[in-house]
Design a protein around this nucleic acid. Sequence first.
DNA 1: AGCAAATTATAGCCATTGCTATAATAACTC
DNA 2: GAGTTATTATAGCAATGGCTATAATTTGCT
Lengths: 150, 150
Amino acid sequence: MKPTKAPAPESTLVDADTHMESFRQTRHNRRTELIEDYVELIADLIADRGEARQVDIAQRLGVAQPTVAKMLKRLAAEGLIQQRPYRGVFLTEAGAGLAEKSRERHQVVESFLCALGISPEIARVDAEGIEHHVSLETLNAFRDFLRKRE
Amino acid sequence: MKPTKAPAPESTLVDADTHMESFRQTRHNRRTELIEDYVELIADLIADRGEARQVDIAQRLGVAQPTVAKMLKRLAAEGLIQQRPYRGVFLTEAGAGLAEKSRERHQVVESFLCALGISPEIARVDAEGIEHHVSLETLNAFRDFLRKRE
DNA sequence: AGCAAATTATAGCCATTGCTATAATAACTC
DNA sequence: GAGTTATTATAGCAATGGCTATAATTTGCT
């Protein structure tokens, strides 16, 4: 059909392997973003109230409590939290580290959006979605922008 | 435990309803982003090769062909594409509209990241993940930034 | 202490999005 | 035009992340 080679790719179609790699990365990020959201939220709740209860997590995430219970088991299995039956959860050292990393990244993204003139409410929502797809290089670019802004 | 009220919320904990709304929005975006990726890719393939075959879609998305076949059924059910057995797919008017919208948004996000000084490869990958979580307001802020840059 | 209310645990369901294996059909080559 | 190769369709499985309903346990009140 095509004569040996595509006749000048006039569209936005890039190299197939590159394309694939981007999507693979995105799928991978999707897998980890829920975990990061949980850990970050647990850290915030502990900082604010002294404990992280399932009801509070569920309310803030907008999901049902059994959904939270199931996910907490997964977090525990991955060594990010520690839990005792019928009690609130605690972060392990690994969990606290991940939480801190996530929290800082979230903060940078949200501040960056605000610095662009986006309204705080929208910046909040968008940052929640964007933060998990921001590479270190992009995060640093955001930081640079914020620094130069001041 | 806590004395009537939290002792000055020193953390990043925002209003519970706001928090919930952000996560709900993010979950909603997740549901639509795959659809947008497919439609956008199908449009690109048609523009570049004259047709969109499952093997090509699968290769560029980095998934197996049956995965693509299943998703195409969903797209057809939603009226975004038209397909005949053992043949490539076509975009309906609705599908073409969504594809164009997605493509343009993708382009803005990727260009914006590049304008921030991020390397093209990283910008590609990050844009792929970020584009689906960018509200209209944020997209416009990106456009403004690009315009003022020139 | 004991009872009611709140919270957590568990069971079992559903939808989504991946996969492999294999059958059916189309495309290509000779 | 017949056979091989490439592509698409279909069946069936697994993991993930939701849900409701209900049991078990803790908390709070009197």
